[in-house]
Amino acid sequence: MKLLALSVIAASTFSFLNFGDQDIPQNEVPSVVLNAFTQAHPNAAQVEWEKQHDMFEAEFEKDSIDYTVQLNAAGEVLQTKHDVTETELPQQIRKMIAESYAKYKIDDVELVEKKGTLYYQIELDGTLQDKQLVLDANGKEQKTVSYWD
């Protein structure tokens, strides 16, 4: 009986710690958020919404590229990211990765715009451990900028 009770508590705790991410239908997105999103991305297709506390996140496609945008409850765009190919990385970044992370393979690359500044998010696959980097266009690691999953 104690094991069952502990299992229920653990499951409840885990679901609570799901960081509040919740898929929501578009009709539950506040109009100010939806209007700001539509204005910023008028050609978005296959839009899916999530709510995390008082933030809204839309995942969508535009021109066959995956995008994600995060907006606050007032409709302000906080950050946007989209997939880019390894070949689209600036030469300085490719050089830095080749020199500093030679044992890793580039797995995923995204271009993030946050507060008017562009960053490259790069996920590197390693033999024993993967790495997530946030770099500026010159290849300098930005440790004060969080990797956005």
Rank of each mutant, 00 (worst) to 15 (best):
L111Q: 05
A74N: 12
R94W: 06
L89S: 03
K131Y: 14
Q91E: 15
G75S: 07
Q46V: 08
S15K: 10
P25I: 10
E99V: 13
F14C: 14
H53R: 08
A40G: 02
A102Q: 13
D108G: 01
A73S: 12
N43A: 12
A74K: 08
P42Q: 03
Q39T: 11
L3T: 13
E59W: 04
L135G: 02
Q91N: 11
M96T: 12
L135W: 01
F37S: 02
V109P: 04
K95L: 14
K143F: 10
S15D: 05
N18L: 13
E76S: 09
D107M: 08
Q26M: 12
Y101V: 11
H82S: 03
Q70T: 10
I65W: 04
E59K: 12
I24W: 02
D63G: 04
S15R: 06
M96H: 12
D107H: 14
Q142Y: 07
T117L: 12
V29W: 02
K95S: 11
Y147L: 11
N138C: 01
A98I: 07
K62G: 02
L124N: 02
E57F: 01
K95N: 11
A10R: 12
N138L: 04
Q132D: 10
Q91F: 08
N72T: 03
I106F: 05
A58G: 03
S15C: 09
Y67N: 04
A98K: 14
K103D: 15
S64R: 04
V109R: 01
Q26A: 15
